[in-house]
């Protein structure tokens, strides 16, 4: 107890002495780790570049204006590709993620011992690996282009959609499912009448949310050759044509803002 009697008066402390010491030690240890890590990074850093960065940034800024507006006409196609990568990738991910989610949810999986761990492994593997790494891999396998981008986005999104969806399935109201089962419904009927109506709003929300994220991600998969506007960005940076780079960046911002607006509207409409 943090309260103790000391010679007639009762003393109160927030925590017991041992616990308090442990917490101080934790802070000390954490600070030490942070400083140590920082030192290791600092050793690998050429500080001259860092101190020079302000001037560099100013220099770069000057070279990026005025944006080369006429270049925008060459961007429509990559932008269209970018949006397609995100949209088709999301659709593809959903097709795979929905069954995986049902297999992973504790209350719908056919077997907790065998099927569920496999489904969870698929989810974790997909989630742990960034879309850009998937893109690297897929460019090596299926060759550069939009197709690799779509697959990369899809593979990354499966885990995300399936995880959120299976959590939603696990949180459903069991009594509603029970009521449907009690009418004598079969497995499939229970699914469509008892479970699907309950998770539909969550499902729609997750889909739109992921689509929004995928728009951002699809702007970069091109950096490793997987199509879309990232491809242009990479080549313009290589050519050091900074006025075109600034147009690309503005185009990306505009796309992201629009997609955020669309997803906010759709989510609002669902709720």
């Amino acid at each position: 107890m943090p309260t103790q009697a000391k010679g007639g008066t009762r003393v109160w402390q927030r925590r017991e002495r041992g616990r308090q010491l442990a917490i101080w030690a934790g802070w000390f240890f954490g600070t030490f780790i942070f400083l140590y890590c920082f030192k290791l990074i600092s050793d690998k850093t050429i500080w001259f570049f860092v101190t020079d960065a302000g001037r560099q940034a100013a220099d770069l800024g000057v070279r990026m204006v005025p944006p080369n507006w006429s270049y925008i006409n060459e961007l429509w196609e990559p932008l269209w590709d970018t949006i397609n990568i995100a949209t088709i990738g999301t659709l593809l991910a959903i097709v795979i993620a929905v069954p995986v989610a049902f297999l992973a949810a504790r209350n719908t999986t056919p077997s907790v011992a065998v099927v569920r761990p496999i489904a969870l492994l698929i989810i974790v593997a997909s989630r742990s690996i960034n879309a850009l790494i998937w893109a690297l891999l897929l460019v090596a396998i299926v060759g550069p282009g939009v197709f690799a981008g779509i697959l990369a986005i899809a593979l990354r999104s499966i885990g995300f959609v399936a995880k959120l969806l299976y959590e939603a399935i696990e949180e459903i109201d069991a009594s509603q499912v029970e009521a449907v089962t009690a009418t004598g419904a079969g497995r499939g009927q229970t699914l469509t009448y008892g479970i699907v109506p309950q998770i539909l709003p969550a499902f729609a929300g997750i889909t739109v949310f992921r689509w929004d994220i995928n728009i951002r991600e699809s702007t970069v998969v091109g950096l490793v050759g997987a199509g879309g506007i990232g491809l242009e960005l990479n080549s313009q940076i290589m050519e050091l044509s900074w006025t075109s780079v600034s147009v690309i960046l503005l185009a990306i911002i505009a796309t992201v803002v629009v997609s955020e607006w669309v997803s906010a509207k759709v989510r609002h409409a669902i709720i």
Partner: peptide, 9 residues
């Protein structure tokens, strides 16, 4: 990376 050079920083 352009500004600070290659590396973890």
């Amino acid at each position: 990376v352009k500004l600070f050079g290659f590396g973890p920083f």
